[in-house]
Design a protein around this nucleic acid. Structure first.
Length: 739
DNA sequence: CGAAAGGCTCTTTTT
DNA sequence: GAGCCTTTCG
């Protein structure tokens, strides 16, 4: 297979330049993935580089898998030896291999976001910081940021400049000590410790440097300092570092991604070859043009000019609905229409939104209409309570020092070990300078040899603690001889967890999830027990739900804008195109964050191949309260000639309703234009009360069901004769009182 | 100690 | 509207 065939000149150059640093700036749909895979295949097939000498880093596990399967076709079986994965997965591997050198126990467990939060909370309490006064989430964020900037607790302490940072600093110190005590690494530690390993141990670094002669990093715009440093260190000798990215698609600054990594690459690698991939093979001219106009409103960016030979295509459709339910209804209706007219298949369509919370309403509409869909990571599987509970048992068996897991399951199901007991146990551990599990073990042993330790527990509590400890101890013994599935069954049975779950009224569903987890464990049962356990726990920690996404199934995709990066669909609906949602409120006071919101929108637009719908709702319930939202300012960045004549949509009748949406509304920024100017009624509305009979231009006569004041308007619910119940706003609806 | 109920605060995005 | 935490009562 000729790996250079069918590549355009820029792509070819990117593939053929194998020595020295290369920066590939790849616009959306420019064949980036092709370039990366073909480059690796070129290294192997043409240059005769051994696949083991190649390190390829992707942003998600899914991207890694996709790359692997393409490589399999291009270069054959041998690519199995290439190191391919996310930064986190690769670092975990390095650390299990060589982490001992910096005091990392190779058996370490990986703490995910939830574990991290619970440990930070506990640490804050121990430090005397009121978690109600300071948000633990903010502390987690600050600590995580520090780690991604490679600041140790001591570094952070030296650098801190505010009272808040002082508090964080104290928390960070203790938090890190507790991680060490638990033989646990959090996500950020995986990166940070790997860097520390390479910095402090030249021999270890040299080993990896000489193994990996060619390094490739995808989505480079989303790397943080720790990741950047890792690449710099590994490629330090040969500088055969090829990074691929698009600054305009940088959407992870909140995860400490630093755009400077890509913007300054040429500065740090002065002889870097820069390749621009500007030809787009994905979208119509209209869509690409809309995208270009949107992104060029950003100030902080490297100019690049995208072009395409694709057809002009349909205009972008901007739709306003009345509520988020109607928004969802519109989307389902439109999907059905496209499918019926054979313009698209279900699998061609994707619905994208800013926040996961928005998915629920959309999902409900798809259920109601019986339209098949796939939801990418709603409530994440590995974050479900029952899954985390069972995983915690496994982590504890694997690593008894894991205090977060210990606390999680010590009283699940209930064993009479409540908060007081746990508190006393923690105090005991503290006073003896030992870990929680060691304290537990000593208490358990005191049943046999009371002289071994003095503790404050009565007989009943001692017994409960000892029973628990002995149970875990028994599991640990069994873990050496049973395969993973057998162990799984033993654990859920003997711990009483199965009985507890199934005893619950909604326990069936939760048990289903436990069984699904059993299925995951089952994948590893042919491995020898210790390895199976490690592999299983690693998978559970590092694999996210979007990795399970199956693109081959012919269903509509429901997905967040973030998760949509890297995907493409013939038909894209972006819903919730409103101020406060996209751009999200939290970015309002920060221009840099606002630009990131715009990039997020840009990512969404450029997923579309043929048709793009931008849908916004007049009213929307956010966080339990309904409010009127203005259409997103980003819509204004799309030139009018690219947009189909806009309209309202309502109630599945697919008719433009009574009010015509005004495209030429006044610029955003004033409160008054929350409501479009054009249809606002000049004359005062009639006073209406429940029970009044009213007439409406389109719906005919009906009876007022309820009235409610909203802002400076009045919302009226009317049951129209033979037309159903409609919710209308007085200032729009032109209702006449009759009779 | 535990179950149930009520009250509270928020939710952006993810390895 | 949901999850989390606290309170209350048995």
């Amino acid at each position: 297979m000729d790996v250079l065939a069918d590549l355009n000149p820029a792509q070819k150059e990117a593939v053929e330049t194998i020595n020295g640093p290369v920066l590939i700036l790849a616009g959306p749909g420019s064949g980036k993935t092709r370039v990366i895979t073909h480059r690796i295949a070129y290294l192997i097939n043409v240059c005769g580089v051994s696949p083991r000498r190649i390190l390829a880093v992707t942003f998600t596990n899914k991207a890694a898998r996709a790359m692997e399967s393409r490589l399999l076709q291009l270069a054959g079986e041998s690519v199995g030896q290439t190191t391919l994965g996310t930064f986190h997965a690769i670092c975990a591997r390095f650390l299990r291999q060589d982490g001992r050198a910096i005091g990392v126990n190779p058996q370490f467990v990986i703490y995910d976001a939830a574990d991290q939060l619970s440990l930070v909370k506990r640490t804050m309490q121990a430090t005397g910081i009121d978690p109600k006064q300071y948000s633990p989430g903010a502390f987690v964020g600050a600590i995580s940021n520090a780690k991604n900037q490679l600041l140790t607790p001591d570094d952070y302490e030296r650098a801190n400049r505010s009272y808040f940072e002082e508090l964080v600093s104290r928390t960070y110190q203790l938090y890190q000590r507790m991680l060490v005590e638990s033989d646990a690494l959090d996500f950020d530690d995986l990166l940070m410790k790997a860097v520390a390993l390479f910095r402090d141990h030249a021999d270890v670094l040299a080993k990896y440097q000489s193994r990996y002669l060619y390094i490739m990093v995808d989505e480079f715009q989303d790397t943080n300092l720790a990741q950047y440093e890792l690449v710099r260190l590994l490629g330090g000798e040969h500088k055969n570092v090829c990074v691929v990215g698009d600054p305009d698609q940088s959407i992870y600054s909140w995860r400490a991604a630093d755009l400077r990594n890509i913007l300054n690459f040429e500065h740090d690698y002065p002889d870097a070859k820069v390749v621009l991939l500007e030809q787009n093979y994905r979208s119509t001219k209209v869509i690409l043009d809309a995208a270009s106009n949107v992104i060029s409103a950003n100030q902080e960016r490297k100019q690049k000019t995208l072009w395409t030979e694709n057809e002009q295509g349909d205009a972008v459709r901007v739709i306003e609905t009345y509520t988020e339910q109607e928004e969802a209804q519109f989307v389902v209706g439109e999907v059905e229409r496209l499918v019926d007219s054979a313009d698209a298949s279900l699998g061609d369509c994707a619905v994208m939104y800013r926040t996961n919370a928005q998915s629920r309403v959309v999902e409900e509409a798809f259920i109601r209409y019986g339209t098949p869909y796939k939801l990418v990571a709603g409530t994440r599987f590995y974050e479900r309570r029952e899954v985390k509970d069972v995983v915690a048992y496994f982590r504890l068996i694997h690593n008894p020092q894991d205090s977060v897991s210990l606390r999680r399951v010590i009283n699940v199901p209930g064993r009479g070990i409540g908060q007081q007991t746990l508190l006393k146990l923690a105090e005991l551990a503290e006073s003896l300078g030992i870990s929680l599990s060691d304290a537990l073990r000593l208490v358990a042993e005191s049943r046999e040899r009371p002289e071994a330790i003095s503790h404050p527990f009565n007989q009943r509590t001692t017994r409960a603690l000892a029973d628990f400890w002995e149970m875990i101890d028994g599991f640990t013994t069994n873990a050496r001889v049973l395969n993973l599935t057998e162990l799984f069954d033993l654990v859920v049975e003997a711990s009483g967890y199965r009985a507890q779950v199934l005893g619950d009224k909604d326990g069936e569903d939760r048990w289903e999830n436990v069984l699904e987890l059993r299925g995951v464990a089952n994948d590893y049962q042919q491995l020898p027990p210790p390895e199976a356990m490690t592999a299983f726990l690693e998978k559970v920690a590092l694999v996210s739900d979007s990795d399970a996404y199956d693109e081959t199934v012919d269903r509509v995709t429901l997905i967040t804008l973030h998760q949509a990066k890297g995907l493409e669909f013939p038909v894209v609906f972006i819903v919730g195109m409103e101020e406060r949602l996209l751009p999200h409120v939290r970015s309002f006071d920060d221009p840099a964050q606002m630009e990131e919101e715009r990039r997020l929108f840009y990512v969404g637009i450029t997923r579309a191949q043929k048709r793009l719908y931008l849908v916004h709702s007049f009213r929307r319930t956010l966080m339990g309260t309904s409010a009127v939202n203005k259409p997103s300012r980003f819509i204004d960045d799309i030139p009018k000639h690219l947009v189909a004549s806009p309209g309202w949509w309502r109630d599945g009748t697919d008719q433009v309703a009574e009010a015509v949406y005004s495209w030429n509304r006044t610029p955003v920024g004033t409160a008054a234009d929350a409501i479009p100017e054009t249809p606002k009624s000049g004359k005062p509305s009639p006073e209406l009360r429940t029970g009044d009979r009213v007439a409406h231009i389109q719906f005919g006569e009906g009876i007022v069901v309820s009235c409610k004041d909203i802002r400076d308007d009045r919302e009226v619910v009317v049951a129209f004769d033979g037309q159903g119940v409609k919710r209308l706003l007085m200032s729009f609806a032109h209702l006449e009182k009759v009779g």
